[in-house]
Amino acid sequence: MQYRHVQVIDGKGALRGIAVDGNGQLYAAGDSEIRVFDRNERWPTSRPAHAVAVASDGSVYAGEIGQIEIFNGAGKLLHTWRDEKLLGRVTAIGFTKDSVLAGDAADRAIRRFDRGGKFLNNIGKDSAVNGLLIPNGVVDFGVDAQDTIYAANPGKHRVERYTAGGELLGHIGRFDGIDPAGFTGCCNPTNVAIRDGIYTTEKAGPRVKAYDFSGKLLAVIATDLFDANCKNMDIAVDARGRVYVVDTVKAAIFVFEPVKV
């Protein structure tokens, strides 16, 4: 499989998280707002936004420090879930069929809530001795169609598979500083997205890769386009297989699309 770089969406300020909804609509979280591209809308958040996600019903969740803000599709603030303990620093949000998942980087755990915001259980906390090792300061994960959670565990150079109940099923990935099939550096991959496969980003040097669910490397999507000082580059994949990656230094979103050979 091959990808080609099709577009750069330039920005200013701090760009931290992105999400794509079912219609290919792109949302970006940064500074203190959620930006909706194409519609060119800006929804202010009450605290700096670290993550954004779109639920199947079209509502948009913004992860912040100590809280999650939930907007409807038109940008109206519906709810604020505030919990300084369980939502220390929300750097990723995802959904299973019946629950909302929030990655809390302050406590190195994924929290599972029901749709009403009631806390159900932790995922990844203390699993396999020390849980999610994230010296980079970001918990990121993706959820597949069977509600399996794929969490980046950069300190272990792995992507770990969990059930919604928090049981560790297994992992893909290993350290390798030479072979691109492995993850390099101290702590990679930092971010992960799930669609028809596992998509990862790495820091130092920045690298975007695609794996199948068994952990086989399908493609190195990009390496040298990004600023060398980037880290925690959020990644999203739309239904057509287009890959969106954040360059945190340039505050830009790079778009790649698969090329049929």
Partner: peptide
């Protein structure tokens, strides 16, 4: 300190990986 398993200041991270999965 991040206290990483694969510390790039401790290991030469571009050397070949050994049986422990470390450089």
């Amino acid at each position: 300190c991040g206290r990483c398993n694969i510390c790039p200041a401790y290991f030469n991270i571009t050397s070949a990986v050994n049986e422990l999965g470390q450089p």
